[in-house]
């Protein structure tokens, strides 16, 4: 009897052998790919590797080159603009839709199904669909002009100044449904009595949401933010499908820069340096979040 209860907390190397053998894929993935792969890329970003990885260190040369390349600067600017607006609009639209669906309406599941279906589609499909809708000669611009407004201009995909907003429209269409579902789950977790109390106190609906409900949903908002942020940094296939970085290099993004230098331009170390910068930006976002989530819990 005592051996069966002990077997849950084994100490010897050969105890629990099957579980250890079964965990080999997980251990290999964690150590070799995630830790090893990341360390390898960071290490080789300090070299001058071109076609093949070579360990001839050149210090921070690759990073200096990276930050003096116009294409990278444009990529970072695009990511900043896309990221900023995507974050705000996704949160606002996601929460507003969830709040509207939470008002005990009829046909809730139909609306939810419609708002969420774009999320099932790939970024390639999303990008191509919006490329067609935003087509200047046959798309929305053309339809409005046919209706009589001859000078109407809405051609984001061919205008370097606003092309990133054209991509933003498609990205929001695809991703807001997910945040809506998460917000809706958060709203459902809020006690009915809050609403009764607010009604007794004579506080209006909108005011109750802003003053009471949203502060109560802080953890849900944090989860949503992390989710949106990690999606933003990954943005790649949407751009490839919708504009392929064009017109010119006006809609380039960091992920595309990395792939380009590693697999097309055969300048490996430059790609490694760019991907290390991407990693750095994730770390900068992730550490405050991890601190808030886990550091806070321990103290409370």
């Amino acid at each position: 009897m005592s051996s069966s209860s002990k077997s849950r907390k084994p100490s010897g190397l050969f105890r629990n052998m099957s579980a250890k053998i079964a965990s080999v894929p997980m251990v290999l993935t964690a150590l070799v790919v995630f830790v090893g792969g990341t360390a390898w890329t960071v290490l080789y970003s300090f070299t001058s590797s071109k076609l093949l990885p070579k360990l001839n260190f050149v210090g921070l040369d690759q990073y200096e080159r990276l930050w003096s390349t116009r294409r990278w600067i444009i990529s970072i600017e695009n990511l900043a603009v896309y990221g900023f607006f995507s974050m705000i609009f996704t949160l606002v639209i996601g929460f507003t839709l969830a709040a509207m669906l939470d008002r005990k309406i009829r046909g809730e599941s139909i609306f939810r199904t419609i708002f969420l279906y774009p999320f099932a589609l790939s970024f390639v499909v999303t990008g191509l669909a919006w490329q067609w809708i935003l087509n200047p000669d046959l798309g929305i611009q053309n339809v409005v002009r046919q209706m009589g407004w001859e000078s109407f201009t809405f051609n984001p995909l061919n205008d370097p100044d606003i092309v990133i907003y054209g991509i933003l429209i498609a990205g929001l269409w695809q991703g807001t449904g997910l945040i809506m579902v998460i917000m809706l789950a958060g709203l459902r977790g809020i006690d009915e009595d809050i609403w009764k109390a607010a009604r007794v106190d004579g506080i209006g609906t909108v005011k109750t949401y802003i003053r009471v409900i949203i502060p109560m949903m802080r953890p849900v908002f944090v989860t949503a933010l992390v989710l949106i942020a990690s999606g933003i940094i990954k943005i790649y296939d949407l751009v490839v499908a919708q504009t392929n970085g064009g017109p010119g290099i006006a809609s380039e993004v960091p992920a595309k820069y990395v792939i380009n230098y590693m697999f097309r331009a055969q300048n490996l170390a430059q790609g490694f340096a760019a991907s290390t910068m991407m990693l750095l930006s994730v770390v900068i976002i992730l550490i405050p979040w991890a601190y808030l989530e886990f550091g806070g819990k321990k103290r409370g």
């Binding site: 105890r15 965990s23 997980m26 150590l31 995630f34 990341t38 890329t41 760019a274 991907s275 991407m278």
Partner: peptide, 25 residues
């Protein structure tokens, strides 16, 4: 088993690493 939680934590943190960092390795 000893260390299993450590590997799991690495795995979860790894989910946030941009794929681009691990593509070439």
């Amino acid at each position: 088993f000893k260390g299993s939680e450590v590997f799991f934590t690495i795995l979860i943190v790894g989910a946030f690493i941009p794929y681009q960092v691990m593509l070439y390795p």
